[in-house]
Design a binder for these strands. Structure first.
Lengths: 215, 215
DNA sequence: GTTTGTGAACCGTTTCACAGCA
DNA sequence: TGCTGTGAAACGGTTCACAAAC
């Protein structure tokens, strides 16, 4: 597997979408896919798909396409989801509870091993089968359980403090659901998921498209 | 307000982040911001911020910066969130329930007016103060309540059918939480929010950064 | 001195086009 | 014929640099 060079961010995002489609095709017992089909599922041109997959190496067969299981395995290996990842979730509010119950994570090699909350009245409560723990135990649990990823699902004002604690505890990456940009070291990647921003982007598109506003 | 030209997608996204920061500054009673401050809050260069805000017109004052309330109002107007937007939520599962309870939406001019679910056993149940309605009533409610936005929070296999029904009912844009690309008409914009894809992007970054996988 | 607004240069991704292979 | 792999061209967003304004 050659091509250990820099992978552009847009490509990384699309690889994830290709994998999603490959898993669907696996369930349907399809043996091969063309770059065109893959592109349709990810909203990309076929030439784009071939460029993206080029970083993996020569995995396609001219005239045939890509072998579904082999390509899925190659992408998983490249992304790093062929290994198991253990995550700590901070925040037992609405979003935190939904994430804790979200089956799809577990199915894909991600495992939430513990839930934390700053609020004393919430600590000790049962949430989706987990007992909410105190932030005081964060560092201990991260080390003992070998947690690699922190998930932040707390209100914006508390997000930075939680991020600092997660980094100090030894987490290697953060998934942030709080609508606030986190300041962390260069060596700790952060990915933001912001519902409101997504909704605003949508409303903007709608307004541009139809001119009118509201409703 | 000139500059009614095409707005690049990355710019639209950043405008939303600028607005987020402007609201924070408003709460702090700050009168002005510089492009540098705004950039820090959105992860962009100061020159980038000035270019982005350039589409609004001459809103900044050299030597001073941008007036917080005026800029916030200008961005809101540009995005279209100065008007109220009514949304219909489809899917009363984990994510749907979290979204229904998510206060931040309501605060910002977005209002979920009804929740629907295909599952008969769920219809009629109370969720976050709403009574879950049958999909049969979708078109009626969309028209009667003047719903402009559809939110999809159902499993992937049902997403496309729901999208079709929403479009047929007259929705003007779709916020999609299902991990599946939707095929809808060009005139109905779609914005995807995909947790798993976000997690995979994060894991990829971590793997690249540290070389190692897992944990 | 500080900070905006903007044309120009820069850079990286996307698209094109076609040779090569099944 | 169908489809991949890949240089080369095209495109569009980002960064630079500086004149103008406060």
């Amino acid at each position: 597997m050659p091509g250990r060079g820099r992978v552009p961010a847009p490509t990384a995002h699309r690889l994830s979408l290709y994998l999603r489609e490959l898993e669907r095709l696996t369930a349907l017992d399809r043996a091969t896919v063309s770059s065109r089909q893959l592109g349709a599922a990810a909203g990309a041109a076929d030439s784009q798909v071939r460029k993206d997959l080029g970083i993996i190496g020569h995995v396609g067969q001219p005239g045939i396409g890509y072998r579904v299981p082999a390509l899925a395995a190659a992408i998983r290996s490249l992304i790093g989801v062929d290994a198991r990842w253990r995550a700590a979730l901070v925040g037992a509010g609405n979003i935190g509870r939904a994430l804790a119950s979200y089956r799809r994570f577990q199915e894909e090699g991600f495992e939430i091993v513990a839930i934390f909350d700053r609020e004393p009245s919430v600590v000790g409560r049962k949430v989706a089968g987990y007992t909410v723990q105190s932030m005081d135990d964060l560092a201990t649990v991260v080390e003992r359980e070998g947690v690699g990823i922190g998930i932040i699902a707390v209100p914006p004002d508390g997000a930075q403090a939680v991020a600092d604690e997660l980094v100090a505890a030894g987490v290697r990456g953060i998934l942030n659901f709080a609508p606030r940009r986190l300041r962390v070291g260069e060596d700790v990647p952060t990915v933001d998921v912001d519902f409101r921003s997504a909704l605003e982007r949508l409303v903007f598109e709608v307004s541009q498209r139809t001119g009118g506003k509201g409703t």
